[in-house]
Amino acid sequence: MSVVLRKYAPMALLGFLGFLMVASYFSTIEILGYFSRELQNWSSIISAIALGFAAFILLRQHVPRSLKGNIYSIALVGSMGLLPILYLITGSTVSFQYNWVYQTWVGRLDPSMYSLVAFSIISGLYRAFRVRNIDSLLLLVTAIILLIGQVPVGGVLKPVVNWFLDVLNTGGYRGVQLGIGIGLFAYALRLLIGIERTWLSELKGE
């Protein structure tokens, strides 16, 4: 494949489509809006095709491992096969069997994983709130005030908590958000005009 096709064609395509999307946002011309909607539909279609491709890669990795007796790979391949098979048998994604598998397996595993967050927050807090210097002392004092202020017994601290949240916290957040907004704009510009092209990988840029 020539360098033009490998390097310049994807860059030109990205730039053209990117500026088209920007123009459709700022313009009321109907044809631009139509192209914008079509492009977003195509994005969904490409993602769906890529998901099928990724499922193939996953199976290519785990089927050989399953044959060697790896229990986790067997579980993965089995799970991937089970729902499509149930769909083919029952002909519906709202059948009792299909829902039973989803609700009793996936529907239980997700909250189980979520519940683990509590333990990681405790261990994270333990490390974050160790007093090592004046900054961490300030963090600890602020956190204690905020924690006590959020429970009924700490109602007397509510004005202080609100001041921390509305003035200090919001001020800091807005400062960071301002930087993010400008940084995002500049990055998008670099991407669209083609000076940021890591996504092409070095070999394609030769």
Partner: peptide, 14 residues
């Protein structure tokens, strides 16, 4: 899924 081939290409190139 769509990141898989791109990430593969980037790491391979490196």
């Amino acid at each position: 899924a769509e990141v898989t081939p791109v990430a593969t290409d980037i790491v391979r190139s490196a």
